[in-house]
Amino acid sequence: MKYEKILALAGIGLLLLQGCGEPAPGGDAGAAPTKAAEIQSQSPAQVPETRWEALIPADWDPQAMFKGVDIDSFDDNDPRALDLMLKLRQAWDNAPVNMALNGKPVRIPGYVVPLDQQADGIREFLLVPYFGACVHVPPPPANQIIHVLASETIPLQTMSTVWVSGTLEVMRSETEMGKAGYRVQQAQVKMFEE
């Protein structure tokens, strides 16, 4: 694949990260921590929607390394393109997380990237904010990937659209499909219906 195409895909990912909209009403990331037992007792409908933008620290700029770089001047075999892609991948794999969300209840929509496909469905997967993430190059930043361990096996397929509810943990995990910055265990998973 040409470096230009790889960089274009990275640029699309950046645009998607920026263009997701405003934080959901009532989604106050600075609220006092909620006890795990209280979170477990809340039904998914009681938890306000968490927006993907809330998972990105306010002071992190995913486009910082592209400032002052004339990507259009790169040729297919330009070593600067490969160097930039390697730096981008490293920066995104180590992307900072929003520590204020650790231990908070979440209800967030996204796409399923299976990690344990079984005959009756999926129990472990990555939740990502846009279609094709982790399946195509490059995966999103770690702060835009949630490692989900569902409370039960669910009949899902790759890129199914779902709501995930549970307690968000700041926990890095490395999988064959991408590096996640967050995890939700014992997650309640429902198909997304508008």
Rank of each mutant, 00 (worst) to 15 (best):
M65H: 12
K87D: 13
V137Q: 10
L16N: 14
P25V: 00
M1V: 11
V164T: 09
D83V: 06
E194C: 01
Q185C: 09
D75L: 08
L88W: 01
M191E: 15
F192R: 05
P105R: 15
E174V: 13
Y130S: 13
L84T: 02
N102V: 01
M177V: 04
V113K: 08
V112L: 00
L115P: 04
V128A: 05
A142R: 05
V106M: 08
E22A: 11
Q157P: 05
A150H: 14
L9V: 00
G166W: 09
K104R: 15
P57V: 01
P141Y: 03
L82A: 12
L14C: 07
K190D: 14
M65P: 03
N77V: 00
D76C: 02
I71T: 11
D75N: 09
I108Q: 08
Y3D: 06
G178P: 00
E169N: 11
Q186N: 15
M177F: 11
L9P: 01
F125A: 09
Q18K: 14
Y3V: 04
E169V: 01
E169M: 13
G11Q: 15
L84H: 05
E169H: 12
M171A: 13
P33A: 03
Y182L: 05
V128I: 06
L16H: 14
L127C: 11
D78A: 04
M85F: 06
V135D: 05
L156V: 03
V189H: 09
D61G: 04
V113G: 04
N102P: 07
D70V: 06
D93Q: 10
K2H: 06
N98P: 01
T175Q: 06
P109T: 10
Q188P: 00
F66L: 12
P155H: 08
A37P: 07
A36S: 12
L156G: 03
L101M: 14
A29V: 12
V135P: 05
I122M: 06
S173Q: 10
L156I: 02
G19F: 13
A91P: 00
I56M: 06
A31Y: 10
R107M: 09
A95R: 00
I71D: 13
W92I: 01
E194A: 07
D120C: 01
D120H: 07
M85P: 03
D70K: 12
D93Y: 07
P44F: 04
E169S: 14
L168V: 08
L17Q: 14
N77G: 14
S73G: 04
V97I: 13
G11R: 14
T34V: 15
D75S: 13
D59F: 07
W92Y: 06
A91S: 12
